[in-house]
Simulated assay, not measured.
Amino acid sequence: MPHTADPLELLQTLIAIDSVNPALSPGGAGEQAAADFCGRWLGERGFEVHRLERRPGRPSVVGVLKGTGGGRSIMLNGHLDTVAYGTYEGDPLHPHIENGRVYGRGAFDMKSGVAAMLAAAARATAAGPLRGDVIVACVADEEHASSGTEEVLERFTADGAVVTEPSMLEVTLAHKGFAWFEVDVLGRAAHGSRPDLGIDAIAKAGHFLVALEELGARLAAAGGHRLLGPGTVHASMIDGGEGPSTYPARCRITVERRTVPGEPASAVRDELAAILDHLAATVPGFRYELRAGLHREPFEADPGAPITRVLLAQAERVLGRPPVIRAEPFWTDCALLAAAGIPCLLFGVSGGGAHADEEWADIAALHQVTDVLTGTVTDFCDA
């Protein structure tokens, strides 16, 4: 076979493939070449290869090796897309090794995870199928809207899953969600010399910004989730005004609310609406429009689920100690898998530089993650 199940070789090959997400960076190459490579690689090892490409040029690839029967099915999930190169130092598509690290765009986030799960699936099934199905999902678009995992979940399910995002060799059992909203504070346009006719939407918006800061303080004081702490809120963008001598008729504020388990997006909308309704009742001339945008629910794994117990045991075996349990402030595809009824958790390599000018993955950690995943696939599917 032209490619071995060596995760370092796989990672170097994947780094050299341009897969910048075009939804974030117009003109980006997208996942097509990376999906082509993963599909060929899985096919060479006897996996059924399914290419899902609802959006042309933005494919996800799913490899399935059906079990002999009676075992549990597992899904390994990792995304192929990367962020743009920006001011990346050196050649982002030329992987190089230095001091036990491999450098290049996507080395950490998260082509290391994709390489580890490909190698693990191949190693675990090298002697033939296990009792349960092994499903390897190399997905598109996680860095933007996760349309790849959404499309995969329309056709595939499993008894357990591992998302191989980088986690510093720690086991992630929870992460925050997010909800985006647009608030238009409405005024009335008039010439700057006629305050009797105009209503300054930007000045009115100041009342909302103060109330938003107060909400953030209340959230911080509430304590929040046992692993994640409190939810947060901030105003991320603001736009308004037509000219220096015009009372602004509108001021638009984009709000991001980071949520923890127990805070669904519907409750967050009600939270903001209550603040805005109070301002409309107490601030003369305050009017608003509230629109919900993209939202992703938070995630929390079941610590007693079989997939959790198996991976924790395998991580302890490989690391020589019980793994650290952690939670992430950012969102991952784990939440989509859990919402689809698939018990899951997150485990991946050590490294650094996600979305930064220099990005790297620790080579020893890459091999450790591969070993943990290999053992997890074998034990989970043959149980």
Rank of each mutant, 00 (worst) to 15 (best):
H3L: 06
P7M: 06
L8I: 10
E9N: 11
P26M: 01
G27V: 02
G27L: 05
G28S: 10
G30N: 06
A33I: 12
D36I: 10
F37N: 11
G39Q: 06
G39E: 06
G43R: 08
R51L: 04
R51D: 05
R55F: 00
R55C: 02
R55D: 01
G57D: 06
G63M: 02
L65Q: 15
G67T: 12
G70E: 14
R72L: 10
R72W: 07
R72P: 05
S73G: 11
I74S: 14
L76W: 11
L76G: 09
L80I: 06
L80N: 03
Y85Q: 06
G86P: 06
G90I: 12
D91S: 07
R101W: 00
V102A: 05
V102R: 01
G113D: 09
M117A: 10
L118H: 08
A122T: 12
P129E: 12
R131Q: 07
G132L: 06
V134L: 13
A137C: 08
A137Y: 08
E142P: 09
H144S: 11
S147D: 08
F156T: 12
A158I: 07
D159Y: 09
V162C: 09
V163K: 08
V163A: 09
E170A: 15
E170D: 13
H175N: 14
F178E: 00
A179L: 02
R194Q: 14
R194K: 13
D196G: 10
L197W: 07
G198S: 08
V210S: 05
L212C: 04
E214T: 04
G216Q: 07
G216S: 09
R218K: 11
R218I: 02
G223A: 01
G229E: 05
P230C: 13
S236K: 03
I238W: 04
I238G: 13
E242W: 13
E242S: 14
T246D: 00
R250E: 00
R252M: 14
V255C: 12
A265Q: 01
I275L: 15
A280G: 03
A281N: 12
R287W: 05
E289Y: 01
R291T: 15
R291D: 03
A292P: 13
A305L: 07
I307F: 03
T308M: 15
V310Y: 13
G320M: 08
R321L: 11
I325K: 09
R326W: 00
R326V: 10
A327W: 04
A327N: 04
W331N: 08
D333Q: 02
A335F: 00
A340Q: 12
G341C: 00
G348D: 15
S350Y: 02
D357E: 09
W360G: 02
A361E: 06
D362I: 00
A365M: 02
F380L: 00
